[in-house]
Simulated scan of single mutants.
Amino acid sequence: MHIAVCDDNIADRKQMQRLLERASDANKKNGLEGFFIDLYGNIPSLMQTPQMYDGIFIDMTNISESGMNGIEVARSLRKINVSGKIILCSSAIDYESLATDEEKEVFIFMTKPILKNRLREVLDICEESRSNKEPLIELRDDNGTIYVNGNDILYAHCKNGGGRIEIKLVDGQIITILSTIYMFYEDLEPFYYLLPASDLTIINIRHIQKTKAFSVIMDDGHKFWLSLEFNKHIKEQLKKEKGL
Rank of each mutant, 00 (worst) to 15 (best):
D142R: 12
R164M: 02
S97E: 15
R140T: 15
F230Y: 15
G221P: 07
T111F: 03
M52A: 13
L19V: 00
R206K: 15
T100Q: 12
I153W: 04
N160H: 11
I174H: 13
V73Y: 07
H157Q: 05
I80R: 15
G70A: 07
G144A: 01
G161K: 04
N81P: 03
I56D: 08
I63D: 09
K133T: 06
E236Q: 13
D199E: 14
I125V: 10
D124T: 02
E102R: 13
Y192Q: 12
S179M: 02
K112C: 04
R75A: 07
E127K: 04
E166L: 04
E186R: 15
S131Q: 07
V5S: 10
M52P: 00
Y155A: 05
V148S: 02
I137F: 06
L115S: 14
L244I: 14
G150M: 01
L119V: 08
F57D: 09
A4H: 10
G161F: 01
L169T: 03
N151V: 00
I10E: 15
L136W: 01
C6D: 06
I181E: 12
K112H: 10
E33S: 06
C158R: 06
R118I: 01
I234M: 03
D38H: 05
N160I: 00
K240A: 12
W225K: 14
L115T: 05
S90T: 10
A92V: 07
E21Q: 15
D94M: 02
L20A: 09
T61V: 10
D38Q: 04
R118H: 14
R130P: 01
G55K: 00
L244A: 14
Q237Y: 07
G55A: 13
K242H: 12
D12L: 09
K29M: 08
M68L: 13
P44E: 05
V5Q: 06
N231F: 00
K14Y: 12
A4P: 04
N27Q: 11
V73N: 11
P44H: 07
N117G: 08
H222W: 03
L195H: 06
R13S: 13
L154S: 10
D187P: 00
E103W: 08
N62Y: 10
R13D: 12
S64Q: 09
D142W: 01
S215A: 12
S91E: 13
N132R: 11
I175H: 09
F224T: 07
R120C: 05
Y95W: 11
E134H: 02
F230E: 14
Y95T: 08
A156G: 12
G70D: 10
E96A: 05
Y147S: 03
P50M: 00
Y155P: 04
S90N: 12
N9T: 08
S129W: 02
A23Y: 03
P190F: 04
I80G: 13
G41F: 00
N69C: 13
D12V: 01
H207W: 09
A197R: 00
M183W: 00
L228M: 09
R130G: 02
L188H: 09
D8Q: 13
G34E: 02
D141L: 02
